[in-house]
Design a protein around this nucleic acid. Structure first.
Length: 466
RNA sequence: UCCCCGGUAGCUCAAUCGGCAGAGCGGGUGGCUGUUAACCACUAGGUUGGCGGUUCAAGUCCGUCCCGGGGAGCCA
């Protein structure tokens, strides 16, 4: 079919265009017209935050019937002459010579008006909300970041590993799991045996993955440096602006890397992604800076310009207990940090991303490497202002005897992790990795207050529509 | 799951002490030679989330359920 030019491409070399003819296709954002003279249509095709202004001269041609049908939300094609615009707000505009309507949107019932809507309202019309400036911009940033994540790792020789979505291990210490089954709870199997899973698809309990890390370790100990990037599922009944039941996680895993190397990669990774947003999504960043979070760009530039703060858990406890700040949960060595502690550190004390290393052994999962002091493990959390933890990682325990001891201490059934243990029996090597939640990253770089605006179709407790 | 706040026109919100349910935007109609959230005039639009209770009288008070938001926990 007839294909026009992307509006983003029109603006890319806008000085070249005046005098030439162009065809654009998109959705009408607003229409302003004066019946006696000229009509203006702002057309957006999703390629660009800013739409192109279409000028419809009514004199000499009869567009009056057509113009009335071009309501907000309509899908149209416009062919016209690109011209320098005499008005403010745009350098070039398109003077319509031909207009075709693909699909109308009834003005009385179209849910999106040319005004600001609340995010809560837009969530209820998730099939239309990507047409708004904010959600559209968030989607473009998310797309850019996803691609940049691949680029970062591929440029450094990492291999992309597709770890399974369905797993059989339930106790990785990473939250509640969704169960996967073909059994119908409404129709129990007759003559139920002692093993209720015998007639289930996998003949054993199965779940949606809460992390690809353990499987990524397998490939790291064969291909060296690998990463997974895919959907992850957590069944916690969490109702906050930072949680989703289905989200995307990036998990690099690197052989022959200790915690220090791990941290170096993680900090370079964050810096790279922020630079991508500032450089490749400048228009979106400016939009978010103006309408969502004033000061966003400065915050991001600050996070790139200054080196990140790195402290140990023990030092962080010291800073917090000497702060004189009244916390709802008092701080002492051995306690896990609460949201209030994390916020205080990254927002008040440092005012930028901060990495915390070497947490108490009792607080962290069995696979983290035990430090020489026997009290802590080689873990790292990277906190950012406004969000809290954005990256969690560690050096993994590569010593067979220590791993077995950790599993016993944490009550992890060894028979379920035979393969994980064997990695330590056959050519074990120091390795480390981390995980980053894509949606929290998008939140961090856009300033969007709720994580539900960072993913096209958010899944939260009680919500799986669309 | 717990704590707090909210649910009023299509959307965003107001309504004093319990006393006639309103505005802006959006829609419709008319006007205006270049608008930028266009502007001006007119106009339509309501079971005040559901159910029950108190009262002469309930958007407002009480009970309960549903829905939404913020925070906490859990987590990335």
């Amino acid at each position: 079919m007839e294909r026009g030019i992307r509006i983003a491409d029109l603006f890319k070399e806008e000085e070249k265009w005046p005098g030439k003819t162009a065809v654009v296709q998109g959705w009408v954002k607003t229409r302003r017209d004066s019946r006696a003279g000229v009509g203006f249509i702002e057309l957006n095709d999703g390629s660009n935050l800013k739409g192109v202004q279409i000028v419809v001269e009514l004199e000499g041609r009869d567009y009056s019937g057509l113009l009335g049908q071009i309501t907000t939300g309509s899908a149209i094609l416009v062919e016209g002459l690109v011209a320098a615009s005499p008005g403010k707000g745009q350098s070039i505009e398109l003077r319509a010579e031909r207009i075709e309507i693909y699909g109308r949107a009834e003005a009385e019932t179209y849910p999106l008006q040319k005004k600001r809507h609340s995010f809560e309202y837009l969530r209820r019309i998730a099939h239309l909300r990507p047409r708004t400036n904010t959600i559209g911009a968030a989607a473009r940033v998310r797309s850019r970041l996803s691609f940049a994540i691949h680029r970062f790792f591929q440029d450094r020789g990492f291999h992309y590993i597709h770890t399974p979505v369905i797993t059989a291990s339930d106790c990785e210490g990473a939250g509640e799991t969704f169960r996967v089954t073909t059994l119908d709870p409404a129709r129990p199997v007759s003559g139920q045996t002692e093993d209720p899973y015998k007639s289930d698809f996998f003949a054993r309990p199965a779940f949606l993955t809460v992390s690809g890390q353990l499987q990524a370790e397998i490939y790291a100990l064969a291909l060296g440096q690998v990463y997974t990037f895919g959907p992850t599922f957590r069944a916690e009944n969490s109702n906050t602006s930072r949680h989703l039941a289905e989200f995307w996680m990036v998990e690099p895993e690197m052989a022959f890397h200790d915690l220090e190397d791990d941290l170096e990669v993680a900090l370079a990774f964050i810096k790279y992604l922020i630079e991508v947003v500032l450089g490749e999504c400048a228009q979106e960043a400016e939009f978010f800076n103006r309408f969502i979070e004033p000061g966003l760009i400065e915050r991001l530039e600050n996070a790139v310009r200054r080196s990140s703060e790195v402290v140990t858990y023990t030092e962080a406890v010291d800073i917090l207990s000497k702060s004189g700040e009244k916390f709802a949960f008092p701080v002492e060595w051995g306690c896990d940090f609460q949201a209030e502690h994390e916020r205080y550190l990254t927002e008040k004390v440092f005012g930028r991303p901060v990495a915390i290393l070497n947490f108490p052994r009792a607080l962290k999962p069995f696979y983290m490497r035990v430090n020489d002091d026997q009290k802590t493990v080689a873990a790292m959390d990277i906190l950012v202002p406004g969000i809290g933890e954005i990256i969690g990682g560690s050096q993994r325990e590569e010593r067979l005897d220590v791993l077995l001891e950790q599993m016993s201490m944490k009550g992890i059934p060894k028979e379920d992790y035979r393969w994980y243990i064997e990695l330590r029996e056959f050519g074990s090597a120091p390795h480390s990795g981390f995980g980053l939640g894509l949606e929290r990253l998008v939140q961090f770089v856009t300033g969007l207050p709720n994580i539900r605006e960072t993913i096209p179709f958010p899944r939260t407790p009680g919500h799986a529509e669309f």
